Simulated assay, not measured.
Amino acid sequence: MSPILEPFTLGDLTLKNRVVMAPLTRSRSSDEGIPPDFAVDYYAQRANAGLIISEATNISPQAVGYALTPGIWTNAQVEGWKPVTAAVHANDGRIFLQLWHTGRISHPDVQPNGQSPVAPSALKPEGMAFTKSGLKPHETPRALETDEIPGIVEDYRRAAENAKRAGFDGVEIHSANNYLLEQFVRDSTNKRTDRYGGSIENRLRFPLAVVKAVTEVWGGKRVGIRLSPATTEPGKTPLDSDPKATFGAYIEALNGFDLLYVHTIEGVTQQTRDVPDEVDFGQIRERFRGAYIGNNQYTLELAEKDLAEGRADLFSFGRPYIANPDLVERLRTGAPLAEAPKAYWYGGGANGYSDWPSMNGPVAFRR
């Protein structure tokens, strides 16, 4: 058997294998941010993964950047997630919730009362926002006031508490893909002159305050974090001027919280595994004291190679999990992978979401 498909101990969790289901935004929640009933089937069908990381989940109304994405700030949302986590556990799976604030990658149409999105600095991103009435160009965000930032830290804390109430096994802090936390980390998007901008130490102050709050709820060994030093999407965001120094300092600071894992997008999300010279994923792997999850266009063969070379401990698969609920079995047998047309990726109902068959017909699972 491939070593990727053998059991693995992650902290105090025993996983079925080293396969991780990456977070996948599918935009099928209600206007109130409640996951649909058929999300229970969707996640339970994919409990063959050693670990599932949920679709990115908004920590507050202000955090929302895309229509029809789930939340974790209300009791109704917590209740909506409970059947999902119960079904994953009934099928001997493990599931973490990804905590999300999109920052400037948003639009007034999805913000409370049509307000402007918030960001470290009032810099308009390129690209389009996904709203209920279609794609619209991003608008210039409002720069957060200094005294607003501690309130967002508390939003993360409450979201982490709600994730525990909903039955998740842990949480992943989304500090990647140019959303709010990474907007603070990069000097290309953070032009602040207060204690949250300027030096690397200042730019890391808010993200590290979030990590502190979340680990105070869960303990470090049930918290992971996602990073993407080379990603320019969404919105064509420029890289940090010195990613090695910035993300090296970030990793060293994160080590102080004894986190379970770092989940790293190696290359540019959905585009390429090519890495610019100024980004060093080996540095992150070597300096981080917890487990390392590699992500971005992995195949079983590439995962086996990277495991043998000590480049990663676990490997996350995103788009392959859309149309292959039995992905682990397909990897085990070498069966071909089904491909989901992009029309099924975002929005809609159960069709193209929880109705993909396994190689041998409907997926058997326990509710």
Rank of each mutant, 00 (worst) to 15 (best):
G170E: 07
L144S: 13
T146E: 15
A143F: 12
E172A: 12
D187R: 09
A176Y: 07
R165F: 05
G134V: 11
I173C: 04
P137I: 02
A176F: 07
D147F: 15
E154Y: 00
H138V: 07
L144P: 12
L181V: 06
I152A: 05
K191S: 12
R186V: 02
S175A: 15
G134Y: 03
L180R: 04
S133H: 10
P141L: 01
K191T: 14
A166R: 13
F168D: 08
N178A: 08
R142Y: 13
F168I: 04
V185D: 08
H138F: 15
R142S: 10
Y179Q: 09
R186W: 02
P141Y: 00
Y156C: 12
I152M: 10
A166T: 07
S133T: 14
E139M: 12
E182I: 01
L180A: 01
Y179P: 14
T146K: 08
D187F: 10
H174V: 08
G151N: 15
K136N: 06
K136Q: 14
A159W: 13
A163L: 10
N178F: 04
G170L: 01
T189Y: 03
A163K: 13
A159G: 03
L144M: 15
Q183V: 04
T189G: 00
K136G: 03
S188L: 05
S133D: 14
P141A: 02
S188V: 04
P137F: 06
D169F: 05
R157K: 15
D155R: 11
A166L: 10
R157W: 14
I149H: 00
S175P: 09
A163N: 12
D147T: 14
G151H: 14
G170N: 07
R165V: 14
N162T: 04
E182F: 10
A163T: 08
R186N: 05
H174A: 02
E161N: 02
E154A: 13
R186Y: 12
T189C: 03
A143G: 13
E154L: 08
A163Q: 09
G151D: 14
R157Y: 14
I149N: 00
T189E: 03
G167N: 08
L144W: 06
R158D: 09
A166I: 07
H138I: 01
E161C: 02
P150H: 05
I173N: 13
E161P: 01
A163F: 11
D147C: 05
P141H: 00
